[in-house]
Design a binder for these strands. Sequence first.
DNA 1: TGCTTACGCTAACGGTGCTTACATAGCCTG
DNA 2: CAGGCTATGTAAGCACCGTTAGCGTAAGCA
Lengths: 229, 229
Amino acid sequence: MTNPEPQIANPTVSTPSVSSTPVSRPATKPPLREALVQATLELVEEVGPAAVSVREVARRAGVSSGAPFRHFPDKYALMAAVAEEGVKRLNEVTEAAIGDLAERDPLEAFRLAGIAYVRFAVAHPAHFRVICVPEYAAYSQTLRDGLRKGRDQLKALIVAAQKRGAIIQGDPESIMLAANAIIYGAARMFVDGQMQAEGIGTDLAEETASTLTDLLGRGIVDPAHSAQG
Amino acid sequence: MTNPEPQIANPTVSTPSVSSTPVSRPATKPPLREALVQATLELVEEVGPAAVSVREVARRAGVSSGAPFRHFPDKYALMAAVAEEGVKRLNEVTEAAIGDLAERDPLEAFRLAGIAYVRFAVAHPAHFRVICVPEYAAYSQTLRDGLRKGRDQLKALIVAAQKRGAIIQGDPESIMLAANAIIYGAARMFVDGQMQAEGIGTDLAEETASTLTDLLGRGIVDPAHSAQG
DNA sequence: TGCTTACGCTAACGGTGCTTACATAGCCTG
DNA sequence: CAGGCTATGTAAGCACCGTTAGCGTAAGCA
């Protein structure tokens, strides 16, 4: 008698809006799986990644507590699915920011991608945190591929910028890493509340990202000083 | 995973005589609180922050499952105490790296501090992750102070470097933020496994940190190109 | 018609955070 | 020294958690 509410099938969440297509192939479309990921995502954004419980997810999807395990071997797999969805959206966002600028002005494209990256992290901090949890990446090849794809986006911009002579001709791996690190660091500093601790609110996220990429581009060492010494 | 041995000899933690003889404890002030933090830290390094349970911590400290709640109002407070300990050690490490170089060569001091920061994160990834969880920072004023102190260390170096003319005269807040972001980003990329995904093992942590700080200092934009255009 | 397969439900198991009630050792005060 | 107070431990218990096992049922197919 732990559950006071008798669970009858609740169609409010589970019904996808694709009723027109014939439902004669249940193996290829499990609507509950999608609903579970969606419910998990909402729960993550609501209470944070640590407070997610599979039972609450099942409750929100209108199914019993054991149902999710028909679609995911364990809680990790469910969370990894949320991370996959997240990295997919993140990549879409940065890709959209790059637009058709990748070849015309790769350096500016990189700056815009970085800003979009930080903007996404600030807009969806809980989701962003799930994306970055290494245990989930270890769990899901799809997630690893998504993360790699995102890094490769930026890497391609660096290489293109080098080809156009816009940036220094050093090791592209190192330059790409520096670019990634400052963007990733800024995003995580926002998500981890360390920007706020410095008095920088999330409303300044884009401006901050822009400033940091500029500083990385120009360098912080005084050239006159270093040229003399 | 029940522990068949109720009192396991722990070399690092001198647990009070909680052995089979329920006689009086020798110490009038049992340092159980300290032992709990230590046991939690070991557990964190062993199984990761997410898998820590208060009961297991109590088991390792040789006390009953309710005992920890005499010293910490809840699990968050216990984890926050671990984070406090961690940020204290992290600050000690960076401070030691800076040494007496802060005034002689603040820019080099900053580079060494950044390298030491990343080295600590790579050496104690689980502990580092606990330090950065914003929920714990929200919980503990001491942790917030420790984090601020660490940032202020770097900030002071930037200001000193500016005063000596070693770096550009821009907004010190922005420069400090860029310096922080690239170091924090590098550390988190290692801790989150993203450096490894790029083929950069933890053995390259210090070298990578050095490279990134160098790149931040010199800038990645080609000055000839940007001066012309 | 029967067989198989997918998918949901129920009930249960052991573990967890945390609370309550109780016991006891040590200190303070008279 | 008696008596109470406080600090700190134990034991039992609650509600919830992740996960599993067994059952029912409906769909697709021979």
